[in-house]
């Protein structure tokens, strides 16, 4: 194993804690990015509250601490691209512009939810913004995204497919089948590995001989970038380059974004007691490498916003989130007919 195939400092939470390099960004763009990341942060905290109170029963997997990846990747995408998620996809859905209300209504099992109240947190769907579906079978949307990429290539309009997965999914065989197919057919697919160094309770050191999943891209001759996933500017740059190449017929790209989830595998707790080798001091260090704080501090340092502005934005977002939750509570449950009516497509009139 060579050093180049390991994450090194990228996996060290004591590193990469300074201000981001935001030179060249317009203030409005940065404000938009900050707002998007804060929205995901507060929206997921509200999900955590719903789980704590017992209102939300379906399994909810929170990605608090990982917001920069979805926001950064989405900045490289357009509405006709096709984005696929996994069990931890609130951020992917929201970063593309998925509705807050529909997400809460879905989590609470209501008819007006993102998936008509049929899927809950793990099954989000918002094709109108390009979010084409998320499922909890680990790795399952990866070949589906390859097929979406095949369709995009056949369409010939320069659209791309994106699949978000974690370091754990790289232990599934289908990842390798999918990388191979995308490479051999030169499909416009962006593979985004959110490497949060954990799969459920096990850290990557107990599961793989190297902590860098980009070695799988290398093995399949796919261009890759390995970046700090808690630096939204790094994500934007790397995703932008890989997506541009895919749109122009250069084939797939692989983005390994190193990050850390603050909460447990599922539910609102920090799960220090559940995680093997998941220690309070490591979590504390990663909390300091917070992608939201780093962007906010960088903007304040550059005099683009004041802390009072940011507080105002936070209050505004929290209010919007609370309204969405309240409206979702008032929404109707699906009719019992949905149970059988949604099994097959309605009969077509030919």
């Amino acid at each position: 194993m060579t050093e180049s195939q390991r994450l090194g400092p990228l996996a060290d939470p004591a590193q990469f804690t300074d201000a981001l390099n935001i030179a060249g960004y317009a203030a409005d763009d940065l404000k938009r990015l900050l707002r998007a990341m804060l929205t995901i942060r507060f929206a997921e905290e509200a999900v955590a509250d719903l789980v704590e109170t017992g209102e939300a029963v379906c399994p909810c997997h929170l990605g608090i601490g990982q917001e920069a990846i979805a926001v950064g990747v989405s900045s490289a995408l357009r509405r006709t691209d096709r984005v696929y998620g996994n069990h931890r996809s609130h951020s992917h859905y929201l970063a593309l512009g998925g509705e807050l209300f529909a997400m809460y209504a879905e989590i609470l099992g209501r008819k007006t939810g993102a998936s008509q109240g049929m899927g809950g947190s793990m099954h989000l769907y918002a094709p109108e913004v390009g979010f084409s579906g998320s499922v909890p079978i680990v790795g399952a949307t990866i070949p589906i995204a390859v097929g979406a990429g095949l369709a995009a290539k056949m369409d010939g309009k320069g659209d791309v497919a994106v699949t978000y997965f974690g370091d754990g999914a790289c232990e599934e065989g289908v990842v390798h089948e999918s990388l191979n197919m995308a490479a051999v057919y030169k499909l416009p697919v962006l593979f985004v590995c959110e490497n949060n160094l954990y799969a459920s309770h096990l850290d990557i050191g107990l599961r793989q001989p190297s902590d860098s999943t980009a070695r799988f891209a290398k093995a399949h001759s796919i261009p890759y970038r390995v970046i700090d996933g808690n630096d939204v500017t790094a994500v934007i740059k790397a995703a932008g380059e890989l997506v541009k190449a895919a749109r122009e017929g250069g084939g797939p790209g692989f983005l390994e974004a190193v990050t850390f989830r603050w909460r447990g595998h599922v539910g609102p707790k920090e799960d220090i007691d559940v995680g093997v080798r998941r220690k309070p001091e490591i979590l504390a260090a990663w909390r300091h490498r917070d992608p939201v704080r780093r962007l906010r501090d960088s903007m304040i340092e550059a005099d683009l916003v004041t802390s009072v502005d940011v507080e105002k934005t936070c209050a505004d977002i929290k209010c919007t989130v609370a309204k969405a939750v309240a409206n979702a509570r008032k929404a109707d449950y699906p009719g019992t007919n949905a149970l059988l009516d949604l099994v097959y497509a309605p009969r077509r009139h030919q």
Partner: peptide, 28 residues
């Protein structure tokens, strides 16, 4: 051969790719 596609020995990814294409306007 763009519409009649021979594949690697990957039943799972091939089937998943067909499903993905079918969710995006095709009838594979």
């Amino acid at each position: 051969q763009a519409r009649v596609i021979d594949t690697p020995i990957s039943e799972l990814a091939t089937t998943g790719a067909a499903i993905g294409a079918s969710l995006n306007g095709y009838r594979p």
